[in-house]
Design a protein around this nucleic acid. Structure first.
Lengths: 235, 235
DNA sequence: ACAAAAGTGTTCAAAATACACCCATGA
DNA sequence: TCATGGGTGTATTTTGAACACTTTTGT
């Protein structure tokens, strides 16, 4: 706000969403194929221009509504600002990117040009959208470890082995059901529903069903180390 | 980028810095007292308007140069976007906020209207700057736990008890020198210089001096839990 | 009865906290 | 030699990973 009204160059602020979901055993991101230049036939994150009467979060929710039912999005959080002057051709566009999650049991209707693409093999992405998508994946992976964000990937009720598959897909490596169960239980994130799921055709013991105790994001392991001393920790 | 050139309302993008330093045993933030409206006599974070040829990080470094010597800033990272439509009076301004750190041994020359204010008792802050400053503090606190970010608060060479004071001030609770030493050493963050500091007037054993092995930020405790299984963890 | 899947008990290892005690210096 | 701050050794606790074994089902 130093140089007040110096014939300011045009500036557009856009919001972009990396909407992630685990489908068919892999972590995927919602992309649409650009029909027109610039970057025709390359794949873009959904998003659009920030309007005058909304903040960035309201904006991304509105824009997303054009692609997926917003009620299906279980978590939205700011990721970062992308502002390289030439990040898109033409007039300058600064972008605020978001990480959004959709639980695995939902399969929203999508427009023709839109698809869930695996993060491990993205088709030619537009602009800087690949790095945004990968940043979203990294954020999700980190948060699976020290928050309850798993609730946003999972259906309302699930078995431990189903949850294990979600975590494995999102993290990119095999997670042990035993340990997953214990870690999440000790932290009080999981609560048993009392129900059990019927085993598959191959038999096997019926699996107990659980739900997440909370469905808003919270940090559950606040300090990895350097915790306050025991007496100051009490409250 | 949906509604392309619809007589767009004016939009300004500013960058703001929460510059933190530990001084006199407490964590402080650099603020300047506004002389003029709006919010005259309230305290603002330094910052200013994003220019056409720079990205947000370049911009904050440039703006900061007007307040403190940029070479004295040991760390800069994006915090978040603040975009409530009415966050400042007048034409709309979207802000990208940064967390910046200055090591405790430096005492940059400051303009007349600028001062280091304790985060625990901020004077009347302007606009939404208090929440930005507090967000910066929280980010710093979290990162002290799982990254090497301490390097950015400490002088190039220091004793463990000096480092303990920095961590205590930043975290807001007493940190044990013994454990601090061990945790940082085990992670390979600290290296001994071989030098010792002369004891104070009251005597006492001379303290060994250390330095941080690295002075760019790195995550040192990547997964609190749900680590990959041992065999997949190797590389 | 047996295979398959789920769940529990137990062991093991690592890492962090707590605390006691020893070390090196100034007065 | 004693008070003062610094450092090390060690015990305790917590937490997560690994693995063996039991439970419950379908065929």
């Amino acid at each position: 706000m130093t140089d007040a009204t110096t014939g300011a160059p045009p500036l557009v602020h856009e919001v972009l969403a990396a909407v992630l979901q685990v489908r068919q055993g892999s972590l995927r991101v919602l992309l649409w194929e650009r029909a027109m230049e610039p970057h025709a036939h390359r794949w873009s994150l959904p998003g659009g221009r920030l309007r005058a009467d909304e903040d960035v979060e309201a904006s991304i929710r509105r824009q997303l509504a054009e692609k997926v039912d917003v009620r299906q999005v279980s978590h939205v959080e700011q990721l970062a600002v992308f502002s390289a002057p030439e990040r898109v051709p033409g007039p300058r566009v600064v972008a605020t990117a978001f990480l959004c999650l959709v639980p695995s049991h939902l399969d929203p209707e999508l427009p023709e040009d839109t698809a869930w693409q695996p993060l491990s093999a993205l088709p030619r992405p537009a602009f800087d959208h690949e790095s945004i998508a990968l940043r979203a994946r990294n954020r999700l992976r980190a948060k699976l470890s020290y928050t309850n964000i798993g609730f946003a990937l999972a259906p309302p009720v699930f078995t431990i082995s189903a949850l294990r598959e979600l975590y494995s897909a999102a993290l990119g490596y095999r997670v042990s059901a035993t340990n997953l169960q214990r870690v999440l239980s000790r932290r009080g994130l999981l609560e048993p529903t009392g129900q059990t799921a019927r085993p598959g055709r191959a038999g096997g013991r019926p699996a107990a069903q659980f739900r997440f105790a909370d469905s808003t994001m919270a940090v559950t392991d606040p300090f990895a180390v350097l915790k306050p001393p025991a007496d100051e920790r009490g409250k």
